[in-house]
């Protein structure tokens, strides 16, 4: 089976003031990668004009683009419209679901969505007490359950989880430990480990580090732009099921 070259980036935080800048950096991406994955925080405030900049920068590339939203993209409560706008521009946006991208006869399965926080095993919030606390934890739990189903249903040669929030602490190293519960949740890793995947891509933690691994052994990569400091990073998958 052919090797797949996965370009990944997150936290591009585009707005009118950056129009044209990112596009310039990804010209020629088809010579380096087969697909581009974008792990959320596409905009700064989650407005429609910012989403239009994102659509203009990411659409019309010679390779498929798969994206998820991040917390910034929810800020103006226009997340559903942003998803529609990006999809109309030809970008596949995952909202707690999976997709299969065919690449030269190889099926690349990508599942995921924004994700959410809650913390990591032993130091996390639980569904107990005030309704606000329970709602916070339940949100992550429900997301993880949808991802588990999406991964299970993917009929693919390679599987990648694409998220904004982190599944592990490893890639948060550099962030203050006090804010870890707002940066990710072990439940996201648990869902991926239960169904199996070749790679887990996320962003959100600008001060974190690039490389980590889930408790079940899935490689995790934090591709937040301030972490990778490149327009994108390319990961080559050689294995498969």
């Amino acid at each position: 089976m052919r090797e797949l070259r996965i370009a990944a980036v997150a936290d591009i935080h585009l707005g009118e003031d950056l129009r044209g800048h990112y596009r310039k950096k990804i010209e020629g991406i088809e010579r380096r990668a087969d697909v581009l994955l974008v792990g959320g925080d596409l905009t700064r405030h989650g407005t429609i004009p910012e989403a239009r900049v994102v659509a203009d920068e990411l659409s019309g590339l010679p390779i498929p683009v798969v994206a998820v939203l991040g917390n910034h993209d929810y800020h103006s409560d226009r997340n559903a419209e942003i998803i529609d706008l990006l999809r109309d521009a030809g970008i596949t946006v995952l909202d707690d679901e999976g997709t299969v991208v065919p690449i030269d006869g190889v099926r690349l399965g990508v599942a995921g969505g924004k994700g959410f926080g809650g913390g990591f095993a032993g130091k996390c919030a639980s569904e107990f007490g005030e309704p606000e606390t329970k709602a916070f934890v339940r949100h992550t739990k429900e997301i993880a359950e949808r991802w588990r189903r999406a991964l299970k249903e993917l009929d693919a040669d390679y599987k990648i989880v694409l998220s904004h929030y982190s599944p592990v602490k490893d890639t948060l190293m550099g962030e203050p430990p006090e804010i870890y519960p707002f940066l990710g949740s072990y439940m996201l890793a648990e869902a991926a480990d239960a169904e199996g995947a070749d790679l887990f891509i996320h962003g959100h933690a600008h001060a974190g580090t690039e490389k980590g691994v889930t408790p079940g052994g899935i490689r995790v990569r934090n591709v937040a732009l301030p972490v990778i400091k490149h327009a994108y990073t390319v990961y080559c998958l050689n294995g498969g099921y």
């Binding site: 070259r5 370009a7 800048h21 990112y22 950096k25 991406i29 380096r32 070749d198 790679l199 490689r219 732009l225 301030p226 400091k229 490149h230 327009a231 994108y232 990073t233 390319v234 990961y235 080559c236 998958l237 050689n238 294995g239």
Partner: peptide, 13 residues
């Protein structure tokens, strides 16, 4: 300022 550089070396997993 974050300097967004051209893509660098690829990683083989």
């Amino acid at each position: 300022l974050v300097e967004v550089r051209e893509p660098g070396e690829e990683e083989h997993l």
